[in-house]
Design a protein around this nucleic acid. Structure first.
Length: 472
RNA sequence: GGUCCCAUCGUCUAGUGGCCUAGGACGUCGGCCUCUCACGCCGAAAACACGGGUUCGAGUCCCGUUGGGACCA
């Protein structure tokens, strides 16, 4: 059995979107799973729409996802002479021919055929004319007039097309640039690609490609046409479906392994398993379990999966990933508490890194801004004594530890007769400004005495002021 | 319009003729836990598009209808 060789051939006409990323993933995973090779090829023959910026964006996205390639990147624009040699070969063998029908003539024929309710394929005017090469001539492939061409597809089964439905299609334009269907086949042949997993929007191109393989006497690759990823309105993914670029998810604070997990599970399954690490995916991915119906992209489920991956991620790695988000919020990370300790209090509650950075706000703020409603409800004279007591006990405690802190709270509870809830909420507001936060002992431990004490002091002063104002 | 593909809870899916009283996950709703909010845990509602066959037996096979999608024009 030859080693598996797969490929991913994006057109650099824009960012890499999630649908394309999924296709890349399937090919990459399959190559890695079977110990084969994965080839990257940039299909940039459409010079009008291809840009270097898009090429860079694609690299950036692939790198973030951790999709690496063994061969390439190849650029179609630099392979024109290779395509030409194959065109010449087909021409010489009489399997292709020059055609000088003008676009106007073709359009006219199409109109007539349409009006007469006939097929609108090329009528073969130049097929047997033996025309020489001229500047305005295109090259057409001589499709067998009869018979059928069938795709043996590993996901959809056999799909058969009538050859007469295909017609003599153009393989090289008059400017010498090969058409998509031709360039793809020549590339796949010369790059040794033997397994092609791609979107099923390519199904109708496939018989043409198979015909070219056959004309060249080349062995066919294994085809697997995977269903499209649809937007919430059940149509093909596009700009109007919102943020669909891979890097947009990175910027929103998603983990690459979460996006990968989500994308692969959309159209592939392994029993009831939902959560996969990248290693598990490589180990378990198989062509057999690819689904054959289109799937709707569900941001909610991706978010839930991201949450699960954040929970499972190593805090030390999270620290590196979170840092830019914190800096974006304007925080001086190195001046704050220990980052890994901060993450340990948040990684079971934040669904994205962006959320986490936002939830970490109180760790970095010098002077806590009390949420008015929270202050009104919890920073009231009734708890003044308890807070003072707490402050004194904490000062006596010196170094913080979760256990020591708990002891201090117990002591205060005993002296005041308050329950923990009665004391914890005011303290929470004092330390974070809000009524919701991680556990009170956890955050105090992370914050440390040098941050906790001044904040408590400030809350006490706040209440004293409030009491004084009320007395007047 | 032509060609092709697809069809299980709202969504992603398990299911490969009897194990299906159709399972899991997200979401939704209810409860528990609790220093708050989350997490977590427990529970609920929720699907085999429809109609014909084949078979002792069909979500599973065949045909048709309907619906959706893709490509070409």
């Amino acid at each position: 059995m030859d080693p598996v060789v797969t490929r991913f051939p994006p057109s650099p006409t824009g960012y890499l979107h999630v649908g394309g990323a999924r296709t890349a993933l399937f090919n990459w995973l399959y190559a890695r799973h079977s110990g084969g090779r994965f080839v990257l090829r940039i299909e940039d023959t459409d010079t009008a729409r291809s840009t270097q910026a898009a090429v860079d964006a694609i690299f950036e996205a692939l790198e973030w996802l951790g999709i690496d390639w063994d061969d390439g990147p190849y650029y179609q624009s630099r392979r024109l002479d290779i395509y030409q040699s194959y065109i010449d070969r087909l021409l010489a063998a009489g399997q292709a021919y020059y055609c000088t029908c003008t676009p106007e003539e073709l359009a006219e024929k199409r109109q007539k055929a349409l009006a007469a309710g006939l097929d609108v394929r090329y009528d073969g005017t130049c097929r047997e004319r033996g025309l020489p090469r001229t500047p305005d001539a295109v090259v057409r492939f001589k499709t067998p007039p009869d018979g059928t061409t069938t795709i043996h597809d590993v996901v959809k089964g056999d799909i058969t097309f009538e050859n007469r439905e295909i017609g003599d299609f153009v393989i090289q334009r008059s400017d010498g640039v090969p058409t998509y269907n031709f360039a793809v086949v020549i590339d796949d042949i010369t790059m040794g690609i033997n397994t092609i997993i791609r979107g099923d929007d390519h199904v109708s191109n496939t018989p043409k490609q198979i015909l070219i393989y056959q004309a060249l006497g080349e062995e066919l690759p294994v085809y697997g046409h995977v269903p499209m990823v649809l937007g919430q309105d059940r149509t093909k993914l596009s700009k109007r479906h919102g943020a669909m670029s891979v890097t947009a998810y990175r910027d929103m604070g998603y983990l690459p392994e979460a996006l990968i997990n989500y994308l692969v599970r959309l159209g592939w399954s392994c029993g009831d398993q939902e959560f996969f690490t990248r290693e598990e995916l490589i180990e378990k991915f198989s062509l057999e379990n690819l689904g054959k119906s289109a799937g709707v992209f569900d941001p909610e489920k991706l978010l839930a999966l991201n949450f699960d991956h954040i929970k499972a991620a190593d805090p030390a790695r999270l620290a590196g990933l979170l840092r830019p988000f914190l800096e974006q919020e304007g925080y001086d990370v190195d001046a704050g508490p220990d980052l890994e300790k901060i993450i340990a209090t948040l990684n079971q509650r934040s669904k994205t890194l962006k959320d986490m950075a936002r939830d970490a706000a109180f760790y970095y703020q010098g002077e806590i801004e009390f949420d008015p409603a929270a202050a009104k409800k919890f920073l009231r004279p009734a708890v003044l004594e308890a807070l003072r007591l707490l402050r004194d006990e904490l000062q006596r405690l010196g170094e913080f530890s979760e256990k020591g802190l708990e002891g201090v709270f117990v002591a205060v509870m005993e002296k005041t007769g308050f329950k923990l809830g009665k004391i914890a909420q005011p303290v929470r507001v004092a330390l974070t400004g809000k009524t919701a936060s991680p556990g009170i002992f956890e955050i105090m431990d992370v914050l440390g005495p040098q941050r906790v004490l001044p904040r408590l002091e400030r809350a006490i002063a706040f209440i004293e002021q409030r009491a004084a104002a009320a007395d007047k």
